[in-house]
């Protein structure tokens, strides 16, 4: 299991990092934390890198390093890194350029397998997509700030599962809202749901939605199977059936106190591109964290 956590600044990325690292701890995943910095115009790329080289001689960090340092301090404080191994604090000099505007720092003495920090520059979707494709992450965790404008590109082009940490309040008890139907995506989503629920001790609401009063056998079976699986894993789960538009019902039921988990759409990429998909519309409209399982 490999997790990518995308952060952008101290002010806004606290919840993302916190949720992300807790998930990583529970899933025992190897984890990479990435900060994607400003896109640099090609005309000025070398001038900017000259300026950055000079800044090093003045002991001034290049942009983005401060964000990594903040993430490092968080990791240290929450014992993801054994601070005894790191008596010198943030190991700025172990940030190594790995080409194409990507710099990486592998953290020694981490309490979970392989923990690293990386810095990239460019358009955020391009960079995340490239990172996920080349390094084959299973789950990308990202803050909700640019959610509406980026939702389409995230769902369409990022190959891993996506967790958008939107409006997340660290002190709130969340329930999980699992959207269940007969699609192949559901069983994967249920598996994720079990693990997350076990980890954070959440209650789970399983929601099955039909356009009319008549719920097909497949729908009922899928819901029953999911409830059974939850109970077997010791997770408290309750099945709900609703009639109406799937997207509206999910968003409405979720409110602000649920984490929505749903499977990715199995439509062809072209149909998704032009028509959109349920996960995409849920992500656009909801006010709570969403996990889309691919």
């Amino acid at each position: 299991m490999k997790i990518l956590i995308a952060i952008s600044s101290k002010e806004y990325s606290g919840p993302t990092l916190d949720v992300g690292m807790n998930i990583a701890r529970i899933l025992k995943a190897s984890t990479t934390i990435v900060d994607v910095g400003q896109k640099i115009s090609e005309f000025s790329m070398k001038d900017v890198s000259l300026a950055n080289e000079l800044m090093e001689s003045w002991d001034i960090d290049r942009p983005g390093v401060d964000v990594l340092e903040w993430a490092y301090k968080y990791l240290e404080k929450n014992q993801f890194i054994d601070s005894q191994d790191m008596c010198d604090g943030f190991p700025k000099h172990s940030l190594v350029d790995s080409g194409a505007g990507r710099a990486e720092m592998l953290l020694q003495g981490s309490t979970i397998e392989d923990l690293s920090l990386i810095l990239r520059n460019g358009e955020i979707i391009d960079e995340l997509r490239d990172e996920v494709q080349t390094h084959e992450y299973d789950l990308t965790i990202i803050g909700g700030s640019g959610k509406r404008s980026m939702a389409h590109d995230l769902v369409q082009y990022i190959d891993s599962s996506i967790f958008v940490v939107n409006n997340f309040d660290l002190d709130q008890d969340y329930k999980i809202l699992l959207a269940v139907d007969d699609s192949p995506g559901t069983s994967k989503a249920v598996k994720y749901g079990v693990r997350v629920a076990q980890a954070f001790n959440n209650k789970v609401d399983l929601l099955t939605i039909s356009n009319d009063e008549h719920f097909g056998d497949e729908y009922r079976h899928a819901s029953a199977r999911a409830v059974k699986m939850m109970r077997r894993s010791g997770v408290e789960a309750e099945a709900h059936f609703k009639v109406g538009d799937p997207v509206d019902s999910i968003v409405e039921t979720a409110g602000q106190d649920h984490i929505i988990i749903m499977g990715a759409s199995t439509q062809s990429p072209i149909a998704k591109f032009f028509l959109g998909s349920k996960p995409l519309n849920v992500m656009r409209n909801c006010d709570c964290p969403v996990l889309i399982v691919k």
Binding site: G37, I40, F43, S44, D47, V48, N52
Partner: peptide, 15 residues
């Protein structure tokens, strides 16, 4: 704009 000249980009790159 940011892209107008190298110096505009250099100061923008600081964030």
């Amino acid at each position: 704009t940011v892209v107008a000249s190298p110096t505009c980009m250099i100061i923008h790159s600081t964030g």
